[in-house]
């Protein structure tokens, strides 16, 4: 079961709207595919990013995976906790393991992303 209130991408990112901004993370499926996460390369605060551009790289011992921006906008905050404890993403992918916040011109753009139901169907199809 994936959290119903979030939006998703086919690249396994999730988005939560909070105070008019988008909070970004990776899904439980993505973290379990990667295994024990050893490092998260966080984006730079205050930089502009375009939708589908690489936002961050997440590394485990034997793999590295890019996180793509689900929306365009300006990065307003990054989760500094991940520098010290990247394993938070394994432990709590949807809450404590968030990666960054993006301020976007039109927050309604999130509605173009996958709903929880659609993402679950997508996961099943690609099992």
């Amino acid at each position: 079961m994936v959290p119903q209130e979030l939006k998703y991408t086919k690249e396994h990112e999730w988005v939560r709207v909070e105070n008019g901004e988008a909070v970004i993370g990776i899904t439980d499926h993505a973290q379990s595919e990667l295994g024990d996460i050893t490092f998260v390369e966080l984006p730079q605060k205050d930089t502009e990013i375009k939708k589908t551009e690489a936002l961050s790289t997440i590394e485990s011992v034997k793999a590295a995976s890019e996180v793509y921006a689900p929306l365009s906008g300006k990065i307003t905050e990054v989760n500094e906790m991940l520098n010290e404890k990247p394993e938070i993403i394994n432990e709590s992918p949807y809450t404590k393991g968030w990666i960054c916040r993006i301020h976007t011109a039109d927050i309604s753009e999130v509605n173009t992303l996958l709903s929880a139901t659609d993402y679950e169907i997508y996961l099943k199809e690609n099992e």
């Binding site: 490092f39 011992v61 590295a64």
Partner: peptide
């Protein structure tokens, strides 16, 4: 830190 290397990251 092998994720830097060619056998994992290939062209990246």
């Amino acid at each position: 830190l092998q994720t830097r290397e060619q056998h994992i990251r290939r062209e990246k």
